[in-house]
């Protein structure tokens, strides 16, 4: 059997050339694409997420790993069919109205993508109404809201309230994040999940989906 862990290790080392070589080699040995994805790449990204949380890996390195992951996914996608994208879930993500900050939100989106989650990124300054509309359109498993400013934190509540009013709250899990957001605040809002950083966001999202 192919040593999938080697793929994961190359990914953790952000070595794109090596990862693509190994994926190529695994396919030559007729290893199933789904195993390459789950046992190699996704297992590697899980470690990246953990290392980010523990402070062992820095954001630029995590982003580099995510880029390598995306490149490997491009190779595997045609071979995976429905099997690959189904089961990992989908997410609508955006920064709430009045807030133009997107670096953290983009980071989370990128980490989601690289762990196989389908991402609908709605950008910044997204109104509660637009979020509701997008839930109807994409029917995601998870809604992820970001706010960087203490002044836009109330908009997290307004957005969740709008989802409740639209009657869609039971159909979608809600996760919030952003520098000033805390677990206590997430609890008072009735969010299903909260993550302090992009690494733990993937973990939390997977547990919710």
């Amino acid at each position: 059997m192919f040593d999938y862990q080697e793929i994961g290790n190359a990914l953790i080392a952000c070595d794109q050339i090596r990862v693509l070589e190994l994926v190529e080699a695994a396919l030559k040995e007729e290893s199933p694409a789904i195993d390459i994805l789950n046992k190699g790449l996704i297992a590697g990204m899980d470690v990246v997420g953990e290392k980010m949380q523990s402070g062992e890996m820095f954001i630029p390195e995590v982003l580099m790993a995510a880029k390598v992951m995306t490149a490997a996914l491009d190779v595997l996608k045609p071979l995976l069919g429905d099997e690959g994208t189904a089961g990992q879930g989908s997410v609508v993500i955006g920064t709430v109205k009045g807030d133009l900050h997107d670096i953290g939100k983009n980071l989370v989106a990128m980490m989601f993508k690289s762990s196989g989650i389908q991402v609908f990124d709605e950008g910044v300054d997204v109104s509660p109404e637009k979020f509701v509309e997008k839930i109807k359109e994409h029917k995601p498993d998870l809604l992820c809201l970001s706010a960087l400013l203490t002044t836009t934190m109330p908009m997290l509540k307004a957005t969740i309230d709008a989802v409740v009013e639209s009657g869609l709250r039971d159909e979608v899990k809600v996760m919030i994040g952003g520098a000033p957001v805390t677990l206590d605040f997430a609890n008072t809002l009735g969010a299903d999940g909260y993550a302090a950083d992009a690494g733990s966001a993937v973990k939390m999202a997977k547990s919710l989906i």
Binding site: I59, L183, A196
Partner: peptide
């Protein structure tokens, strides 16, 4: 944003000091 630019990746470790003992964690 500069976070995803390769220039950041190739330079941040040399430019920035990293605390070994000092606290840089968020509250939680």
């Amino acid at each position: 944003e500069f976070l995803t630019h390769p220039h950041t990746m190739s330079n941040f470790k040399n430019e920035q000091w990293d605390a070994q003992l000092g606290d840089r964690l968020r509250r939680e």
